[in-house]
């Protein structure tokens, strides 16, 4: 394989891993717990900026052509862990403000507004994360870690991304299909019922929000270490919508489904548009991607709101009833008519 093909394949692989992690992060917030987090991309951006600042060193070291707060040169896994911590803390702060006692649609609007505020602040306060130009020259950690050819270093980073995705997958399965995950789904389905059973719905929303924030930070950190740069025009508030489409197309609440959706929507649509047999103006290509994403969402919400691979409906036998299996069947049959 030529070097260019290898780089292309490696890039697509990293994008798939990053999108799958990010979509899982949104899935635990929106798919499992039912929080419409319209500021999702902000947490990814926060992770990316954190990882960049923690690995670039002080801003004077790069000749002063970019300015940002702080700046440390920390060894390999630390910037990524830092990104997760910042993502989680930021989610905690935003959650404290927006998840309190607001109506669900007001919550969504507050988060949308948070996303816009974050972009304006990042763009106008140039000393914070280098304004509109963004931060660049972030090094791939494998370059200093492993003595090998550039190709090998890139593939080792791809393997690391796959490893992270697998790890997140294991943690997500353990969380979502545990009793804790069941409570989260109950919050989504009926928060009043769960409060009547003595659970604090807001606290559980907050937990899901923070877990999602940490994973979003991780996805941003991996992406920035691979592509090397991060700027505000990569995380305008509509970008969040790509992850929503991924979750809806895949099947909200279903981990395998969301992974498939993330690969199809986050990477597949973009690649498909790139390979169109007609030559188009670059700005038209960008518009076309958005139009396709929007149409995909509408089509799926209309024809298959449960997604490609729907969340499994779990049935529990009630051992103290002799007619238990029949009862479960019957209640499942009546519930089958409901739309998600």
């Amino acid at each position: 394989m030529s070097a260019a093909t290898q780089l292309y394949l490696a890039t697509v692989s990293v994008y798939i891993c990053v999108n799958v992690i990010a979509s899982w992060a949104l899935d635990i917030q929106f798919g499992v717990t039912g929080v419409l987090n319209f500021s999702f991309v902000v947490f990814q951006a926060a992770g990316a900026y954190t990882a960049a600042i923690l690995s670039l060193g002080p801003s004077s070291s790069s000749g002063g052509f970019q300015r940002y707060v702080g700046g440390w040169r920390l060894p390999f896994p630390v910037p990524i862990i830092g990104a997760m911590v910042v993502g989680a803390v930021l989610a905690g702060v935003v959650g404290l403000v927006s998840l309190r006692r607001l109506r669900s649609d007001y919550q969504a609007m507050v988060m949308l507004v948070v996303s816009v505020i974050a972009t304006i602040v990042a763009e106008s306060q140039t000393g914070l994360v280098n304004g509109v130009a963004g931060i660049s020259l972030v090094a791939n950690p494998m370059v200093s870690l492993i003595h090998a050819t550039r190709q090998t270093q890139i593939w080792i980073f791809v393997l690391f991304c796959v490893f992270c995705m697998a790890l997140v997958g294991v943690v997500m399965y353990a969380t979502v299909y545990s009793p804790f995950g069941r409570v989260l789904r109950a919050v989504r389905e009926n928060d009043r019922a769960i409060e009547a059973l003595g659970r604090n719905a807001n606290r559980h929303r907050m937990q899901a929000f923070v877990i999602g924030g940490a994973l979003a930070g991780l996805s941003g950190a991996l992406l920035v270490e691979f592509i090397g740069a991060w700027a505000p025009n990569g995380w305008f508030y509509p970008e969040t919508f790509v992850f929503f489409t991924a979750v809806i197309v895949g099947g909200r609440g279903s981990l395998t489904g969301v992974a498939v959706g993330a690969a199809l929507v986050g990477v597949g649509v973009q690649q498909a548009v790139e390979y169109l047999p007609i030559t188009l103006n670059p700005s038209v290509i960008a518009s076309l991607e958005w139009i396709i994403t929007g149409i995909l969402t509408l089509v799926f919400l209309w024809t298959r709101p449960q997604g490609l691979l729907p969340e499994r409906r779990r049935r529990f036998p009630t051992p103290w009833r002799s007619d238990a299996p029949e009862l479960a069947e019957r209640s499942a049959a009546t519930k089958g008519d409901e739309r998600g």
Binding site: W290, I291, T293, G294, L298, L301
Partner: peptide
Amino acid sequence: VIVTIATGLICDNTIQA
């Protein structure tokens, strides 16, 4: 809410194109 966002994105980008 998601339907209206999707519609808005489709309209905006059609105009942009």
